Computed example of a mutant assay.
Amino acid sequence: MTALAPALHDSATMLRRNLRHMVRYPSLTLMLVGMPVVFLLLFVYVFGATLGAGIGGGRGAYVDYVTPGIILMTMAGAATGTAVSVSMDMVEGIVARFRTMAISRASVLTGHVVGSVLQTLLSMAVVVGVALAVGFRPNAGPLEWLAVLGVLALFVFALTWLAVALGLAAKSVETASNTPMPLMLLPFLGSGFVPTESMPAGLRWFAEYQPFTPVIETLRGLLFGTPIGNHAAIAVGWAVAIALGSYLWARRLYDRDPSR
């Protein structure tokens, strides 16, 4: 218990540091929110009528269909910001300086992770608010919304650790800004914008088995009462696997020789 208290105190200090960075440099947060909102408005008002007809409804039905995919896109975009932030600390020598100080080594990564999770959840709340303004109408009750928050928080936690590992592995900030970019494509190459049944066989197989699709289908089931099947179990399994693997990778990278 005596060893845990200093670690928690140091982690809280690092969390405050990251939160202050978000307040002082709001452009990244605005970008994280702005891009998904632009995609939401684009797909609803430009493609919504046509794509909505394809799923047996109109623009209103498509708002309900596409919003879970936009939420996952927000999450993927936030991973890029996390990787860049971690890489900047590594490249600028701040982490090397922290290593010489009498602080918990784990607190540096913990501060990044908790701060990024909070930033991502806030960004997703803004996106959901915009979606409600343009016609998003879920019929979920309080318990279903609580389950939605739990699923999102778990997957955000997993992707944040992956982003931290990618930021630690990057040799430059530019590299760190590019390596998480494939995550932005996964909602498109899944059930985020169109049903997987409409895709060619090979792409359909990938879309059905990649990590984002079960999360999206779980969110739709919780928000609109549609059948979830085994999607929730698969989504949790993916989140746990990504979180554990990314955490171990990040710790190995962080504990390696500072000279790289």
Rank of each mutant, 00 (worst) to 15 (best):
L168T: 08
A165I: 14
L168I: 13
M184V: 06
L183I: 04
G167F: 01
T196R: 12
N178S: 13
L162Y: 03
W161Q: 14
K171L: 08
M181D: 00
S191E: 07
V173E: 11
G167C: 02
L186Q: 04
T160I: 11
S177D: 01
P187T: 14
F188C: 12
G167Y: 04
T196K: 12
P182D: 09
W161H: 15
L189S: 08
T196F: 07
P180T: 06
L168P: 07
L159E: 04
A176D: 05
P182A: 11
V194T: 15
T175K: 03
P180L: 09
G192F: 12
S177Q: 07
L185P: 06
A169R: 13
G192A: 10
M184H: 09
G167R: 03
S191G: 15
F193Y: 14
N178T: 15
P195W: 10
L185D: 02
N178D: 04
G167M: 02
L183C: 00
T175H: 01
G167V: 07
A169Q: 06
W161F: 15
A163L: 03
W161K: 10
M181K: 14
P182Q: 12
A169K: 08
L159F: 08
P187L: 14
M184E: 03
G192D: 11
N178R: 15
A170T: 05
L185I: 14
V164R: 02
P187W: 14
A163R: 05
A169G: 03
K171M: 07
L166D: 03
S177F: 00
A170C: 07
A165D: 06
M184R: 14
W161S: 12
N178C: 00
A165E: 08
W161V: 08
L166M: 15
S191Y: 02
T196P: 07
A165R: 11
F193V: 15
V194S: 11
T179R: 05
G190T: 15
L185F: 13
G192V: 13
T196M: 08
K171W: 02
S172L: 05
A163H: 04
L185M: 15
A176I: 04
A163I: 11
S172F: 00
G167S: 02
P180Y: 03
L183W: 01
A165C: 08
M184K: 09
A176E: 06
L168C: 03
T179M: 05
L166Y: 11
K171Q: 09
L185A: 15
F193G: 10
T179F: 06
T179G: 00
N178F: 14
S191I: 07
M181A: 13
A170V: 09
F193K: 13
G190N: 13
K171Y: 00
L166N: 04
L185R: 10
G167T: 04
A163M: 05
